[in-house]
Design a binder for these strands. Structure first.
Lengths: 123, 123
DNA sequence: TAATTATTTAAGCAAATACTTAAATAATAC
DNA sequence: GTATTATTTAAGTATTTGCTTAAATAATTA
């Protein structure tokens, strides 16, 4: 577990290393928060769910299960993770829960959606 | 393993479901590719490495090990994953390998970096 | 040449992840 | 009330992930 804290190369720029540590320090909260969002969107199933919500407005777990050909509990568990961090919200209509993207629009995800649309395969 | 392909609610909009499947079909390549990038950036250590490269231009594995207080092999393995998908490239100078972001600038990551900078804690 | 240094690679392992099936909630209909 | 439907939750499991330590490359230096 002994940590090799650095190499001994002459070129190691101590000022740069200090500056880097400071950079991480002042941005640590943003990095932590954003990495969590990216990790969620980094799962293909969840990215599909998010993108479909972006395109369609709202859908229910059973729609996703049908569209993605996955079990309802599998979908539900993906949905919960995204709901837990506040990426999506639900609205109940009878027995059905409709999910949608939170409307304090997330710039990072929006950019991802736009990028997906741009890269669309031209049929 | 029997898949519940859908619920039986009256409101299920068959046209919408077909449209969703088509949306995923025409965008499948972009979704697959982008989800891989997001998954890489969704790890806090890797996001720090990427952000530092964005801020500093280039750094070597041993710098990262020092800055992040992690072992060199751990850093090296994170770096390999990002190199494998073409997010970063290396340049050798003697024994040292300097890594940097690929310069066909990745819009999604760039937006992430800008977002991190914006959310910086005001000291 | 051998020794040192920077890095990568490989093997092993603990923790996290994404599914499965079964059971529990919640709302509606009979 | 019971039955049905939509969804969530829980428990179990196989796969993936991110580290560890040790060994292998690659370049430099003596």
């Amino acid at each position: 577990m002994a940590l090799e804290l650095s190499c001994t190369r002459a070129e190691a720029d101590q000022k740069q290393l200090m500056r880097c540590r400071e950079t991480l320090g002042t941005n640590s909260e943003a990095i932590s928060e954003i990495s969590k969002i990216l990790a969620l969107a980094g799962n293909e199933t969840r990215l599909k769910i998010l993108f479909l919500l972006y395109e369609e407005g709202e859908l229910c777990p059973c729609d996703f299960a049908d569209i993605l050909e996955m079990s309802v509990p599998a979908i539900s568990q993906h949905i919960r993770k995204m709901k837990d961090v506040g990426l999506i919200v639900s609205r109940r209509e009878g027995q059905t829960l409709y999910y949608s993207l939170v409307q304090n629009h997330n710039e990072i995800l929006e950019n991802v959606f736009i990028k997906i649309q741009k890269n669309k395969k031209v049929a």
